[in-house]
Design a protein around this nucleic acid. Sequence first.
RNA 1: GCCCCCGUAGUAUAGCCCGGUCAAGUAUGCAGGCCUCUCGAGCCUGCGGCCCGGGUUCAAAUCCCGGCGGGGGCACCA
Length: 519
Amino acid sequence: MSIEEIKREVEEKYLETLIRKREVEEKVLPPLPNVESYDMVVTRFAPNPDAPLHLGSLRPLILSYEYAKMYKGKFILRFDDTDPKTKRPMPEAYEWIVEDMKWLGIRPDEIVYQSDRLELYYDVCKDLLRLGGAYVCTCSQEEFKLLRDEGRPCPCRNLSPEEHLERFEGMLSSKYGEKEAVVRIKTDLSHPDMSIREWVAFRIIDVEVHPHPRVGDKYFVWPTYNFACAVDDHVLKVSHILRAKEHITNTIKQRYVFDHMKWKFPETIHFGRLKLANIILSKSQISKGIARREFLWWDDPRLGTVMAIRRRGILPETLKEIILHVGVKSSEASLSWENIYSVNRKYLDSRSNRYFCVLDPIEMVIKGIERGYVAKPLLHPDFPERGYREIRVETKGGEVKVYLSKRDLELLKRKPLIRLMSLFNVQIESIEEEMIVGLYKGESIEDALVHKAPIIQWVPIDEKVDVEIVMPDASIASGFAERSLESLDVGSIVQLVRVGFARLDCKREGKLKFYFTHD
RNA sequence: GCCCCCGUAGUAUAGCCCGGUCAAGUAUGCAGGCCUCUCGAGCCUGCGGCCCGGGUUCAAAUCCCGGCGGGGGCACCA
């Protein structure tokens, strides 16, 4: 039996098993705990819309969504926008987040804005006040901290619920100014973590100075994240909270609200932080950079925002695969562009058609040609059925002129014979500063292979389109590409042969502007 | 300083709960080869790891203790 025959037989007999194996290998999320005790799995993603989504947000987002899908449950997008002052929401960010999610293929079953729900939080607060689970504290911050550090109650703590209810009404009717009164949740006064002791549930914000982008100055008593989050996780019937470990103390704080109210606390999974090596994620770093004009915008190619990587041609499948692979482990994971690229390349390779593009162009004259040529390179070498492009070269006085890339100059110096891909072979005669001279050496591909001639891309001198590529470091590479690219739709991702994958970002003034994806 | 978490190859992940089937699997990376009209993809081979030290046990990546290393939290932020 020849090798071919064996190969064929194996494929025929075991193809099914091979395919099945691949399916099994697909990453499956571990089951969620205690699913049986809920009517439905409900998860939520709760961003503060003070910036667009970034790679770090993807772990809670994708995991929450995927788990809801896995259990045919419900997935809620909740904007945690209860701080008009220090983490003031960006009006545009609400839209951006929805758009980025849509691009990721994630459609929430419900969208909730916490800034619409202040009355609800007030109601729960009053219940809590009545129950003695919370109180209105009018101590100064300094006084309070002194007592707290010693594990002693402040003078407000033991006043009657009626008194606190009255004080709370006072807060709501602007009897107090900023920092003059807060609502505190009663906790273990001797809790080893100081921040947990008697944490703040409501504070007063001067909305004349800091209006909320959605509700303006309508409310000035704002719940803190921990209070609003606790109330909503219960009211929205969230069954499973998937959040990063940085939220562990918040989980402990929120549990006090549930305990006071006799609510059942959702199952909570804390996973480790996702660190992205050499990728800029920090909101403050980004907004400072934009203000200083170091970055173009939130989608600057150097940034790790979803907007940015999307513009560069990273696919949603890639991000999903990476997040599912990383999973829910409680240790930190550090990923780098390398990891993202290799997954993305896997998806991109079969989808992206091939085109020629030369960067830092240099002219080459090829002598000794009798007639004109039309090269017909395949759009994709693995899929001939997709067809080919036509690249025409004209001959004038026995000469053809094309552009090559200066990046190939070293290669040309080492190898006397080269092949212009899908066209013909050329013997290098001389290489000057701005001009290469070559001699036509026939069109046989076999010759080229025998001589191990490098096969390089090229662009005809009179049939070209200007191209600019925004590189990952935001620098711009420019050159020429074959004209068939002119009909490419904006947003398409192609492989520029021997350059790399790139996404067509826009067409402007006869110029094609790409964003470089990766090689 | 005080609380908490984590530690499998360069990176990520499986295994750890319920010790033996793990002389540790997978992906990526790196090295080499094959294939190919791309420096892409594919295929093949190789490199590389249970943080350290004790203990329990016939047997430990898996259980216990200690050390070391890494991370997080300590806001009227989310």
